[in-house]
Design a protein around this nucleic acid. Structure first.
Lengths: 394, 394
DNA sequence: TGTGAGTTGGTTGTTTGAACAAACTAATCT
DNA sequence: AGATTAGTTTGTTCAAACAACCAACTCACA
């Protein structure tokens, strides 16, 4: 209510943003096309564009083709790709992933650094070195604009509240990097940024307003896009579906969580125990499965059924347009997907939500963080923006 | 994006709506107060108010008190309570509930009609008679403005898609009543309207943006308010948590649903079976419980644990500001609530979502429908409106 | 108790400024 | 040359803002 547009100045600001969003989403685009898309007069668009250009956000690319019945050639407008860049990080189990992106979401550089066994305090200098390195090679006009971190745990008010796989309580990443660079620093749950990736980077989802990304890594979490907005919940704990318990009238002993049955860790542990093995990795599981190992096959059969159950429950809770699965294990064993689909179809014979796999889940995580922090930098949190993901050499 | 305010006309329309919302929410209110609340110039507010008055939506009530340091008395403005009325219905198990409300949500009349064992086609004439009766006694300027029906089942695009307790496939309520009265006719799931009631009628929830209403009647469903909006899902099936299945690695036989364990029907059936009784009602259960019957006590102990589990799961899925329980059974046995709280506290020792009971669940359902259809009538679907619920004699 | 200074609510007439419209230039096609 | 399209310039429009006013109240003080 109070943030609504009420006077001419606010109207003007909003229209500038609308023009920028048009340039962002449909570049290269001409003024006349923007005018038609927004139902604004072409002279109005020209004036608004001039404002954006004076601030350095946009630039002319050259002339486009004239229409085939004659007429002046349009001037093609685009976002200024040399405006600046964001740095986006993901703390994986074995690697730190780092990505440099420009404001439109293009990948300028990507690197992964081995951090297995290191504490956060030991990882920090590696991040600093990467930021330093990128900075010295940069030639953009505004340099570093913002930083994002994907967290495998829960985040509230930009602070890590729970991180089972890497102790993050010793360092306040937000404090440390805002002090150092005076730019927005954003921490967000990994499933949440995955969901933002699907909303902002995947052209196929442009018209969808409700999406759930089920992220099956060491734990299980869901990222929720509802009415085109990331739903975080009051404590940033929405979508923590891995903690769900069974409602089945059996209340003898501790209730067990979904995560205990079908996270990647749970499956690996299960196979390890039966094989009396130790220190197994996802790659070992994949190898055993492909070697037709019966213990592994049976464990993954249970996994597949449980994932189908999770999907069914998520569909009943949120009824989204689509559910994405972000799971390196399923990505490595794509033959599991039709099995999941078929179990799900058994449970829900009539109305079903389409299931899609997220390809290259690490990229998705990094790009989701990029989208979030870039929106903050541009002050375009609520606009509909389609980011690209071209790998570009400037 | 395309619905955003872009030109002066749209701005004007939106500001008229804002002024109306101020009158609606803070009546009686003066122009100067609206001007301050909306940060609009007082002359602007005067002009916008004049438009609303010409359309008959608002009226002056008289003079208020002057400030204690002197100055002219304010003129108090309010919504025109004689503008018209809405009719709102709820198909209960034994009764049809009917409520007449004015545009501000005040209760003008309420009636319940015994319909036990009747089919929808047999109920229809009773509805028609009630509408007729109300209409002849009405003296408002615009008469009937809209009709709402709360459905114990799922609704999509204003059509009933599933109704396990009363066959609704034979009659299209929307078609029938729009044809008859040329006013908006709205069908909505009962848990959803309950949630809307909490958002729109409960002053205590004014600042909350995420709320879940868990409705435990013959089945179990949840109504979801997310970011102040009712989240229906793509097929209107969001919040169908009663259908959730257990994820516990046990896949022998059919997966059983939450509803099978702890809906009111499930509990009654469970007690009936153990007692070899028949045709038991909620009142019987309440009586047995109060008579310290051990079978009933044990069944309700399981019920309480399961409800706590459902709350825990809902909290993990949505992380709302508050969870409401809409359950006639718990309403009749309020001593169950602290037990539910305590089981929930065991499951979630740290972060917990506050639990509240919805009082008088039938009223909540009717008033939620009233809020939805009134918003449609006024074209104020997205505004923040606080409805009242005074019983008024005009 | 009467008066006037100070205060607040609301109206009236004028100004402002962002979107708009029309006339223009520019550049293309057939 | 005439038709068509892109973009600019110049002047118009109209809803909100502003300023000045009137109306009606309080309170202090004579």
């Amino acid at each position: 209510m109070s943030s609504a547009v009420r006077n001419r100045m606010q109207l003007h600001q909003q229209n500038i943003q609308s023009v920028f969003a048009e340039v962002f989403n449909h570049q290269p685009i001409s003024r006349i096309e923007i005018s038609r898309n927004l139902a604004l007069n072409k002279s109005t668009v020209s004036a608004l564009y001039r404002d954006l250009k004076d601030q350095g956000y946009v630039e002319e690319l050259g002339e486009g083709d004239a229409s085939n019945v004659g007429g002046r050639k349009p001037v093609l407008l685009a976002v200024n790709r040399k405006y600046g860049y964001t740095m986006n990080f993901d703390f994986g189990y074995r690697h730190l992933h780092a990505m440099q992106n420009n404001v439109t979401g293009d990948v300028l550089s990507y690197k992964q650094v081995n951090v297995k066994g290191l504490t956060l305090k030991q990882i920090l200098p590696l991040i600093d070195a990467e930021l330093e390195n990128i900075s010295t090679n940069d030639h953009s006009s505004h340099g570093l604009l913002g930083i994002s971190f994907a967290i495998h745990g829960t985040v509230d008010h930009n602070k890590v509240t729970y991180s089972p796989f890497l102790d993050m309580s010793q360092v306040d990443l937000e404090d440390y990097y805002t002090q150092k660079f005076q730019v927005p620093v954003l921490l967000e749950n990994e499933a949440n940024v995955s969901a933002v990736y699907e909303r902002d980077f995947n052209k196929a989802n442009e018209q969808l307003s409700n999406m759930v990304t089920i992220s099956i890594h060491r734990g299980i979490g869901a990222g929720l896009i509802i009415h085109q907005n990331l739903h975080r919940g009051i404590h940033g704990e929405a979508g923590e579906i891995g903690r769900s318990v069974s409602i089945d009238g059996n209340w003898d002993g501790e209730p067990r969580k979904v995560e205990d049955y079908c996270s990647e860790d749970a499956i690996i542990t299960q196979i390890q125990d039966k094989k009396h093995a130790d220190n197994m990795t996802r790659e070992d599981v994949v190898r055993l499965f492909k070697a037709d190992d019966q213990v592994t096959k049976s464990a993954l059969r249970g996994f597949v059924r449980n994932v189908a159950g999770i999907i069914y429950n998520v569909a009943n809770n949120f009824d989204p347009d689509v559910i994405f699965l972000n799971s390196p294990l399923i990505e490595a064993l794509p033959e599991l997907e039709p099995q999941i689909e078929s179990f799900y179809a058994q449970m829900a014979p009539s109305i079903r939500v389409p299931i899609k796999l997220t390809k290259n889940s690490h990229y998705a995580t990094l790009l989701g963080g990029c989208a979030l922090v870039t929106r903050e930098v541009l002050g375009m949190e609520d606009a509909k923006l389609n980011f690209g993901a071209q790998t570009v050499i400037l």
